[in-house]
Design a protein around this nucleic acid. Structure first.
Length: 297
DNA sequence: GGCCAGGGGATTA
DNA sequence: TAATCCCATGGC
């Protein structure tokens, strides 16, 4: 837990749940504390997010960002996408769609974070055909093996997310220690590729069209349609991206009655029905489908 | 387009 | 203990 000497307090936050945001699979580095708050070590800070619902489970309340400087409030608002009216988006998505009405009610506090492109790039190569607990372990190992050792203002030491340059020159033994399996060579090769021109080549894709960004991402080893869509959705502001993985495919099959092999049809369906909010719809479906699976047992 | 190997661990049978 | 599964991709 972060000892706090600075904090930002934001009142009147709506459609918000830390659990939904950090457990819906868009990010793997925030740690849940026993009190339900979440902590991360980054950029020399130890930051802890706590949310206080006005009424339990309402999604409306006060957000406290412990360990953050007040001058950075704008950065946190942007990261947490607080400027977007998710209530209005949910309303649109839920209209005339009972499946989505149930899914979005269940994951009422999901928000899409605006993440760092490089971190997202590596994280979702790691994520492919993998379990979330193991993804978290792999990413933590990568930080520990190749990230810069740092000390936060509160004296806690931690390891930063490794740079493209450090992964480009990673030696095999230490890469093996991260238990990445066959993904290790994807990460090594793609890091070498990105290190040549710097991580800015990914940041630049934010300003490009969906098609340009998508095709640029597909050129990297280990990045296929699913991973490219995740990077675009979580880090490049391409909110219409609709990544189709095992769970979303299952949702489309079991809940919408589509043919499980018809990926093309699912993409077309998402574009037609969810449009510019495809990515948000995808998160509601993913989170809800996993819950259905858990309660089934 | 279809098929299958690739790692490894968590979960299920 | 064995089989199956996992936010897939690359190569054939």
């Amino acid at each position: 837990m972060c000892k706090t000497n600075t904090k930002i307090k934001i009142e009147g936050v709506r459609d918000f749940s830390l659990t939904h945001i950090f457990e819906c699979g868009q990010i793997f580095r925030w740690k849940r504390e026993n009190d339900g708050s979440y902590t991360i070590m980054a950029d020399g800070d130890c930051v802890n997010l706590a949310f206080f619902d006005d009424d339990k489970g309402s999604g409306s309340g006060t957000l406290v960002i412990n360990g953050a400087l007040s001058e950075n409030e704008g950065i946190w608002r942007e990261y947490l996408d607080l400027g977007t009216d998710y209530g209005a988006i949910k309303k649109k998505l839920m209209t005339g769609d009972k499946v989505m009405a149930t899914a979005a009610s269940y994951g009422y506090g999901i928000r899409l974070l605006r993440q760092d492109p490089w971190e997202t790039f590596i994280s979702f190569i790691v994520s492919q055909n993998n379990h979330i607990p193991r993804i978290q372990g792999c990413i933590e190992s990568l930080c520990r093996q190749f990230g810069e050792k740092k000390e936060a203002w509160n004296g806690q030491t931690y390891y930063a997310f490794p740079s493209p340059e450090s992964l480009a020159i990673a030696d095999e033994e230490r890469l093996d220690a991260c238990r990445l399996g066959y993904r290790a060579k994807y990460i090594h090769h793609s890091a070498q590729n990105i290190a040549k021109n710097g991580r800015g080549v990914l940041d630049k894709l934010r300003g490009e069209s969906v098609d340009v960004a998508y095709n640029a991402l597909l050129k990297y080893e280990g990045v296929g349609p699913k991973v490219a869509n995740c990077i675009m959705l979580f880090a490049l502001d391409k909110r219409s991206s609709f990544p189709i993985d095992v769970w979303v495919r299952r949702a489309m099959t079991n809940l919408y009655g589509m043919d499980e092999s018809d990926i093309k049809g699912m993409k077309a369906f998402a574009k037609e029905r969810f449009g510019e909010y495809g990515g948000i719809a995808q998160q509601y479906l993913f989170y809800y489908m996993k819950e259905l699976n858990d309660t089934d047992k």
